[in-house]
Design a protein around this nucleic acid. Structure first.
Lengths: 226, 226
DNA sequence: ACCACCCGATTGTTCAACAATATTTAGAAA
DNA sequence: TTTCTAAATATTGTTGAACAATCGGGTGGT
């Protein structure tokens, strides 16, 4: 998917922007498209046409770029331009390194955990599986893992997890989707949640670590193939 | 400490800046001053004088502001300006929430840990204590805890810890320093490191959690007084 | 085929202006 | 005098155009 194809689509939404947040608005606009895969990893984000389409000046667009670069959604190469980040194998390893600390820690040590969001995510994933919706399963699965970290009650940790999951989406986009990738993990999630609610936190954390190791291996293999 | 007093000092360093990274340079310039306490929490960072002094345009300065705002070093109030962040009691709680997950997890679960940096930090802290240097103790103590998270081998987690420690410095600056605050923690650090190297990771993590709870309470009390 | 070099295109940065919003000042009313 | 309202002022938000710096590709020579 190249840039030009989505320009008209973007232009449609550039109507009502308020003062004092144009840069953030532009950033969220681009973030959406990238997250949805309409702007694929590796795609170049040229300033000129994007300004034109978003209806913002180059200066404002660059503020948006700075935001996205800090989120690692976009990679800036000096004097070359900004590109949708194309995750490397090392990125995948690093992502799972982070997840293997954040998620088990949340399961093991969070105070007064509310598991509603976790149950809801699993339910949504099952609906999506029955409907055969790969994006639905992917999204629900991500919600589940975000909810795990949200158990910590920490805004900053949750935010970091959200960011890492956004990077995960880039990983998925940068290789052809195996339609069966997400399906088996749904039941694993359910088992982890059961174990957790049975009060066996350490066991739940250990299960999750295995789970994450498995997923990492699978993704690394797929990445090597691509 | 007001803005004007450090302007001449800042101007001195604004000589050799390269193309394609002026924004980041300006950000690091300000970050330094804030971290050193020369720009105290609550201080207003006006665009006009800062541009003048750093020798950059308002646009570039605003890119720097965006960077610092994302690091929470600086708080942006729309149409009002940017201010050095003044941490609240809730911020303190959140900071320790993050630390109580990140640091114990690193102790408990990191692979092939290299403890050289930890020993070095403790040694530096002891030298500083003998010299009666409060900033020296504070800095060495922060290095110790940064090194704990660095055990994870994760760039992102280490970066988040660095950021949280930068927020800690703001906390210290926003209340009068108790010269004895850091001293007792040095030996606690040593005990934790010994326990860790004895292979008793869970015990070391537990000690650290207690330690962090204690420090949080102490800071919250001091914050309430101020 | 290989290399140095120039040219065009794009990014990096500045400047000056205007729009939008806050703050301050001044004046009117009580 | 005090208080409230409203215009004047200052500061931030955003734009557009200009120029400098850098990169990539093409050109020509060997």
């Amino acid at each position: 998917m190249t840039l030009d194809e989505i320009l008209p689509d973007l232009r449609r939404q550039s109507a009502d922007v308020r003062h004092a947040e144009t840069g953030l608005w532009a950033a969220s606009m681009l973030r959406e498209r990238i997250s949805a895969g309409q702007l694929a990893p590796g795609a170049k984000l040229s300033e000129e046409p994007l300004c034109e389409v978003l209806g913002v000046s180059r200066n404002t667009l660059r503020e948006a770029f700075a935001t996205l670069a800090r989120e690692r959604v976009v990679t800036r190469i000096p004097n070359r331009g900004v590109f949708v980040t194309r995750p490397t194998a090392d990125d995948i390893r690093e992502i799972y390194r982070v997840r293997r600390f954040l998620e088990p820690a949340a399961l093991a040590w969070s105070i007064e955990p509310k598991t509603d969001a976790l149950h809801a995510a699993i339910a949504r994933a099952r609906v999506a599986r029955r409907a055969g919706s790969v994006p639905g399963m992917a999204s629900a699965n991500q919600d589940f893992h975000a909810a795990i970290v949200a158990l910590t009650g920490s805004e900053r940790l949750t935010q970091q997890m959200t960011q890492v999951l956004a990077e995960m989406r880039l990983v998925f986009h940068s290789m052809e989707d195996d339609p069966l990738f997400h399906a088996p993990y749904i039941d694993d999630n359910a088992v982890i949640l059961d174990t957790f609610e049975a009060g066996e936190r350490a066991a739940a954390a250990a299960l999750l670590v295995d789970y994450l190791h498995g997923a990492e291996q699978q993704l690394l293999a797929a990445h090597a193939r691509a």
